[in-house]
Amino acid sequence: MSLTKEADNTQELTHLNAKGEANMVDVTEKAVTSRTARAEGFISMSDKTFSMIASGEHAKGDVFAVARIAGIQAAKKCSDLIPLCHPLMLSKVQVDFELIHETKQVRVISLCKLTGQTGVEMEALTAVSVATLTLFDMCKAVDPLMVISNIRVLEKQGGKSGDWVA
């Protein structure tokens, strides 16, 4: 993965205090700025499962609608799931799906936005993770061998560390 802005490997871990104990980062003095993050993940499945969800013929109904709502809810609950994440007032959460016919995969893409003092990368990753897990849950009776993979942040904008794209 190449980044348009190289990561600074000299920074210390911010979620540990001087004693090495878990610590929620103090963002009190950070500037309030517009922040955006996009993430993606993939779920691979059998031809039968892919065909079933692509055509909307799954017995459980529109699996994409359910997975989209699950992803949006997950982003909103990120601080409840990840212990040291700040609770954020998200202004936008979007979850989209791309069918990749050649490989029988669904690509899940999330977008999270806010105006605040900390980034939204974890929220974007959580949205993708829960959306792919929901697709798995809704299709596991038909295809228990599905594989979720390659969940990552695609880009982030705003904040002290600047913008970057994977």
Rank of each mutant, 00 (worst) to 15 (best):
Lys92Gln: 11
Ala131Pro: 02
Glu29Leu: 11
Lys5Arg: 15
Ala74Tyr: 07
Glu57Lys: 14
Pro144Val: 05
Ala74Glu: 01
Thr103Val: 04
Asp143Gly: 06
Gly20Glu: 12
Ala54Ser: 14
Met122Gly: 00
Ser51Thr: 12
Lys140Trp: 04
Glu21Cys: 06
Asn17His: 02
Ser91Gln: 12
Phe50Ala: 07
Ser44Gly: 13
Ser161Ile: 04
Pro144Arg: 08
Ala54Arg: 13
Ala39Ile: 07
Pro83Ala: 08
Glu102Lys: 14
Met122Ala: 02
Cys85Thr: 02
Val106Ser: 10
Ala65Thr: 13
Ala59Glu: 15
Arg68Asp: 15
Leu16Gly: 11
Arg107Ala: 06
Gln105Ser: 08
Gly20Ser: 10
Met122Gln: 01
Asp62Arg: 14
Ala22Met: 11
Asp137Ile: 02
Leu84Phe: 01
Thr4Gly: 05
Ala127Phe: 00
Phe97Thr: 04
Met138Arg: 06
Thr115Ile: 04
His101Trp: 08
Met1Arg: 12
Asn17Gln: 09
Glu40Ala: 13
Lys92His: 13
Phe50Ser: 03
Leu114Val: 05
Lys156Leu: 03
Lys5Tyr: 04
Val128Ala: 00
Ile151Trp: 07
Leu114Lys: 04
Lys76Gln: 15
Lys60Met: 08
Leu90Cys: 04
Asn23Ala: 07
Glu29Asn: 15
Ser91Arg: 06
Gln73Thr: 14
Asp62Phe: 15
Ala22Phe: 09
Ala37Arg: 00
Leu114Pro: 09
Ala59Asn: 11
Pro144Asn: 11
Gly159Arg: 01
Leu84Ala: 02
Ala67Cys: 09
Ala31Cys: 10
His58Val: 00
Ile100Phe: 01
Phe50Gln: 07
Ala37His: 03
Asn9Gly: 10
Thr132Val: 04
Ala67Asn: 10
Lys156Val: 02
Asp163Glu: 09
Ser46Tyr: 06
Lys92Trp: 04
Val95Leu: 07
Ser44His: 08
Lys92Ala: 10
Cys85Gln: 05
Thr36Phe: 15
Met89Pro: 11
Glu29Arg: 14
Ser34His: 15
Ala124Leu: 00
Ser46Glu: 06
Leu84Gly: 03
Ala59Lys: 11
His86Val: 07
Leu111Tyr: 14
Gln11Thr: 08
Thr115Asp: 08
Asn23His: 14
Val106Pro: 05
Leu111Gln: 13
Met146Tyr: 02
Gln94Tyr: 09
His15Leu: 12
Lys104Trp: 08
Ala31Glu: 15
Met138Glu: 08
Val120Ala: 05
Ala131Phe: 02
Gly162Arg: 02
Ile53Asp: 06
Cys85Ala: 13
Val93His: 03
Gly20Thr: 05
Pro87Gly: 11
Lys113Trp: 10
